[in-house]
Design a protein around this nucleic acid. Structure first.
Lengths: 234, 234
DNA sequence: ACCTGAACACCGTTCAAGT
DNA sequence: ACCTGAACACCGTTCAAGT
């Protein structure tokens, strides 16, 4: 891989003194900006420092480490996502919208979005997102234990697909046309003796794209919830 | 007097020459061994070099890069997983077993397992795994397009949960008692005015563990498949 | 043919020193 | 009080040189 040098001209101090103290929120904002770039190297302590005119080590006065910073940035994403969901929608449409908005937010910020599937932010954004989903499931009429269970299934489904898509964006050979490539690319002609079922379905499998797989998975979970409500106690 | 050092006194590689050429499979095996350690730093080109008595750069004669090596190691995992699935089981039990075996394999090799949700190996192990799942869905009696669709939903569900669990293992504060900690840890007393639904369900949400969420998610998908077979064409 | 060694361009993180 | 600069202990990867 070829990296552009990014060298500082003449290596001097090169940095102008900031006119006011650095704030936590500025670091979070810069993290969200850099996280939009689909490049693993774009989001690092040193790159943040350059963008904020501070030394990378100054970040550690505001966050315990890069993980802590990423958590804060993710939480800001959840806060934004929740704000975009109209309260007036009925429960299923609200959950569908929340799923799609979460996907979009995570995929648009792949640098931090890749961590969504494994990272709990423990912040107000996360709490608001959980609260929203739980409220929808209550409204659907599920009993308490199923509210909790389907929250977990729904959240893990959405977060995992979103993260996978974000990760895929970061490693895509061609940064353009992001959502167009297939979800998986098996060999175009698998050995029918060794893999007969794959050979029969290879065209179908190759035809899947990320968006389609996300929509299918979300629909499966929502359909199950709806059927539980219709015939409870199974 | 300066002599060419056969080996540096107490540090440096201090490596004995290997008696035979390095083989691709040796590197994969070492990768799988190191990937069992739940520590991000344990699996690197330099650590592999130390274990194999080679310079880290020798790996690049056998693999295009660490990504390529990880892909090969993951493929070996899928090959092992498929071998453990009894062919005699009926379709649903076979898919359940495949799900649990895949989870176990990925979680036992977190160093490469964390990549499972986003990495296609394009190797024989992956093809065998896809073939197995497709064959089960055919046996279930799904129409062709649903075979493909539910393959995607099932695979993404299993891989994403397995990867998330592997990632969680790598960052766990305490490497012992891995599966015991909750799936998510919201604040013990969220503000009931701001997050009423979360406040109502906080105990239930805190009580979820990783295994439970995986089992629930897998069951949801398998239930939907079974219901599709019973009432096709919906 | 196959591997080594050194080098390049990076990381996250710590901590004494500076302002 | 807040940030800098240097240092530490690493990365993945390349490539000329060695055997």
């Amino acid at each position: 891989m070829v990296t552009t040098p990014l060298r500082k001209a003449t290596m001097g101090p090169g940095r102008q003194r900031r006119d006011r103290p650095l704030e936590r929120q500025e670091i979070i904002d810069a993290t969200l900006v850099l996280s939009r770039l689909p490049d693993r190297r774009a989001l690092s302590a040193r790159q943040l420092g350059e963008r904020l005119n501070i030394d990378a080590s100054a970040i550690y006065r505001h966050f315990a480490g890069m993980d802590d910073l990423f958590r804060a940035a993710l939480d800001a994403i959840w806060l934004d996502a929740v704000k975009l969901i109209p309260r007036s929608l009925p429960w299923r449409a609200r959950l569908e919208t929340m799923g799609h908005v979460s996907l979009q937010m995570v995929v648009e910020h792949p640098g931090v979005g890749v961590e969504a599937y494994r990272m709990n932010t423990n912040g107000p954004g996360e709490q608001a997102a959980i609260d929203l989903v739980l409220a929808c499931l209550e409204e659907a009429g599920l009993p308490d234990h199923e509210v909790v269970e389907f929250y977990a299934v729904l959240a893990s489904t959405v977060l995992s697909h979103a993260s996978a898509q974000a990760a895929w964006r970061m490693t895509a050979a061609d940064p353009r046309l992001p959502a167009e490539r297939p979800w998986i690319e098996p060999p175009s002609a698998p050995d029918p003796a060794a893999f007969p079922a794959l050979a029969r379905h290879v065209d179908g499998v190759s035809g899947l794209d990320h968006t389609q797989v996300f929509d299918l998975s979300l629909r499966v979970v929502l359909d199950v919830i709806e059927s539980r409500v219709a015939t409870p106690g199974t």
